[in-house]
Amino acid sequence: MEAQKVDMFLMSNGKFFETHQLAPIRDRLLQLDESKWPIIQTLQFKDPTTILIVSLLAGSLGIDRFLIGDTGLGVGKLITCGGLGVWTIIDWFMIMGNTREKNMNALMQVLM
């Protein structure tokens, strides 16, 4: 794909991924066929900051985990009152990284 398009994608979507993932994503996108561009453009990513706000407000009900697609862990968090409050607090620090990981998985499914 054209470098200009790839850089535009990274400028608008960079915040959805870990910093160390950006260089490999750029390389992979540059090698990608032009026909994949419309699919990549339509991908919806989860905003880590929004998920963090949800985690702070409703983390003990597991809503943050449900939102990023971790239904199993969401159920676990819900029925244990946020893992006795411990898991809720751990997730305040981990949920942004997990969201970025989920975004990376979503992108990789298209890139593969």
């Binding site: 009152c81 006795l84 409050g85």
Partner: peptide, 8 residues
Amino acid sequence: SGATLCLF
């Protein structure tokens, strides 16, 4: 005892 760790 009413002791709770539940933030909610």
